[in-house]
Simulated scan of single mutants.
Amino acid sequence: MFLALQIVGGFLGLLIGGDLLVRGASAIAVRLGMSPLVVGVVIVGFGTSVPELVTCVRAALGGASGIAVGNIVGSNIANILLILGAAALMRPFAASRHAVLRDGSIVIASALMFAAAAWTGTMGRVTGAVFVVLLIAYLVYTVRSDRKAAASYDDVPAVEGTSLLMAIVAIVVGLILVLLGAEYLVNGAVVTARLFHVSEEVIGLTMVAVGTSLPELATSVVAAIRKHPEIALGNVLGSNVYNAVGIMGITALVKPVPVSDTLRTVDIPLMVAISVLLVVMVATGRRVSRWEGAMLLALYGVYIGLQTQAA
Rank of each mutant, 00 (worst) to 15 (best):
I28D: 01
V30W: 08
M34F: 05
S35T: 01
S35L: 01
V42P: 07
I43L: 08
I43P: 03
G45C: 06
F46H: 04
T48S: 12
V50Q: 03
V50A: 05
P51S: 06
R58D: 06
A60P: 04
L61R: 15
I67T: 13
G70Y: 02
N71Y: 06
I72D: 03
I72R: 09
I77C: 04
N79P: 02
A86M: 15
L89G: 01
A94C: 08
A94S: 14
H98A: 03
L101N: 13
I108V: 12
I108Q: 03
I108N: 02
M113W: 13
A115K: 02
A117P: 00
A117C: 09
M123W: 15
G128L: 09
L135K: 13
I136C: 10
Y138L: 14
Y141D: 09
Y141E: 06
A150I: 00
P157G: 06
P157H: 09
V159K: 10
L165S: 12
V169T: 11
I171T: 03
V178I: 08
G181L: 08
E183S: 09
Y184L: 14
L185V: 02
A189G: 03
T192M: 12
A193V: 07
F196E: 01
V198T: 07
E200F: 06
I203P: 15
V208S: 06
A218L: 13
A218M: 12
V221W: 02
V221F: 03
A224C: 10
A224E: 10
I225Q: 11
P229D: 13
I231F: 11
G238E: 12
V241H: 02
Y242T: 00
V245C: 10
V259F: 08
M271K: 01
S275R: 07
S275K: 05
V276F: 15
V282Y: 04
T284A: 15
R290F: 04
Y303P: 12
I304A: 09
A311S: 14
A311M: 13
